[in-house]
Write a protein that binds this DNA or RNA. Sequence first.
DNA 1: TCAGTTACTATGAATTTAGTAGTAAGTCAC
DNA 2: GTGACTTACTACTAAATTCATAGTAACTGA
Lengths: 157, 157
Amino acid sequence: MNLVVSHYQKDTNMKKLSDQPCLIARSLALVGDAWSMLILRDAHIGLTRFDEFRKSLGIAPTMLTARLSALTDEGLLEKRRYLERPPRDEYVLTEAGRDFLPVLFAIGAWGRKYRGGGEVTRFFDAETGTEIDPLTIDRGTGAPLGTRPIRIELPGK
Amino acid sequence: MNLVVSHYQKDTNMKKLSDQPCLIARSLALVGDAWSMLILRDAHIGLTRFDEFRKSLGIAPTMLTARLSALTDEGLLEKRRYLERPPRDEYVLTEAGRDFLPVLFAIGAWGRKYRGGGEVTRFFDAETGTEIDPLTIDRGTGAPLGTRPIRIELPGK
DNA sequence: TCAGTTACTATGAATTTAGTAGTAAGTCAC
DNA sequence: GTGACTTACTACTAAATTCATAGTAACTGA
């Protein structure tokens, strides 16, 4: 008895992904497409409503509905009623959604280095006024990732 | 006269993305799909050859050809001849490709926190033996991203 | 010569995406 | 209280992408 309404799903492929032992693959099963990431980006900027996302992204409403539903189901967004009559809902980031911000900044940092030219949107620390320069480090060693050799451990070993 | 062979391209949509002022959007135009990221993941693990990627990912060869070509064109991978007769090429990470590692780790860190259960692949510092715990900070303030308020500056302002 | 390897291309069906139009339940202006 | 407008969608069709399988080209090694 399967009552789940499946919104957005690249089933054949992505269902496999979410069961893999690799956490990168599992995560990509949820957010491994550009629309989902851009919606999360916009949510971090402060957008919450269907039409705000639609206008910002130029996305087809069907796509937006599917992505918002998926992100809500997966716990990155939360649907919240902000008006009873007429019933109006908005989408706000959950903790899991907010914790996705470092991924977006890491992507942005890569883009600044390798696709930087022209006019770009920039992010500043609101207090110090300095431009944010994202750096991903290993909390244990404090070293930036990529500067030290890595060992991989597969499950069941 | 357009002689460009276009491999993988979600043209109508993604061409727009690569011209946007947002660096996240620009980056996603190149790597904003699960296959591309998983190929980069495998490349970091040490895979270089067509069939290695194909078997690791279970990807259709048409897809793999398209993604490898795109990643090569975009400068994240480099095609290198490793055998002259018969001609055989392998794909190795460029500096831009290697610099994508923090993004993958940031995604993995999110996954560990929110999609962690069961058997997972883990990464360790080869020297200290401690598990890698990725953290994205602002190089300027040293603060983890998401802990301080941010100001956004759009181009032309 | 014959199976095996490697890096693909060809092809067609299934699935997803895009784009436009329309709907439901209201509000607001006059 | 009629018509214009808003908001959050759904319906529908066409276009594009993706998947899966099969096949090819150029070898090697037994």
